[in-house]
């Protein structure tokens, strides 16, 4: 019925949405999109469902200007950012954060900023052997990311995975630019140390 309505208004070149095919065509893709960014399979499943339902609700708004896939991905991306926002605000109330921050403090000597010898980076031994293709190495990094405080992991993912502009990240998560850089620095120190601990 809705499809008919769209037809009368639009030219015949318009691509009509076909929700019957969505699961078959896009469910795996959307799930992959969400799980890569959120590192949480159950949450990713829920978001895929919410995305389809939201898309059905506003199916009249689908203009056929972008592909169905692009349209659905945009809806999902907004939902992922909502999760980011929620995680970021929960973080600020979390006492665990303070502890994590203190943990980081001993990476370097407070007096001169020199590495604390206990935390000296050591060679992983995979630097020259395509570490990107090493499955086990990737899995350890994913586990290390799951252990990060929520806000750190969100800042890191938005920057290094999605390449979002720094000012957008700061305004979305209500983080000052100074804190953004502190988080970026600490997150990397933390991830690298976690890899070293679990790999070597």
């Amino acid at each position: 019925m809705q499809a008919d309505k769209t037809l009368t208004i639009k030219t015949q070149e318009v691509v009509l949405p076909n929700p019957q095919q969505w699961v078959l065509l896009y469910a795996d893709y959307l799930f992959g999109f969400a799980v890569t960014r959120l590192n949480d399979e159950n949450l990713a499943k829920d978001l895929v469902q919410e995305t389809f339902l939201a898309a059905l609700e506003k199916i009249d708004l689908f203009k056929g200007e972008s592909s169905e896939k692009t349209w659905l991905t945009a809806i999902l991306k907004n939902k992922v950012i909502d999760v980011y926002r929620k995680n970021a605000s929960a973080f600020t109330k979390n006492i665990l954060v303070k502890e994590a921050l203190q943990d980081q403090a001993d990476f370097f000597e407070t007096s001169d900023g020199h590495w604390n010898p206990v935390h000296w980076p050591k060679e992983f031994g995979v630097e020259n052997q395509e570490p990107l293709l090493n499955k086990e190495f990737n899995q350890i990094l994913q586990k290390c990311m799951q252990k990060l405080p929520a806000l750190w992991s969100v800042v890191f993912t938005m920057k290094h995975m999605d390449d979002e502009p720094t000012d957008l990240i700061c305004s979305t998560l209500k983080v000052s630019p100074a804190n953004f850089w502190v988080i970026i620095h600490r997150t990397k120190l933390n991830l690298r140390a976690c890899l070293q601990k679990n790999w070597i």
Partner: peptide
Amino acid sequence: IINQMVKSWI
């Protein structure tokens, strides 16, 4: 390397 790995997951 870490940045490249994270990027490659996309």
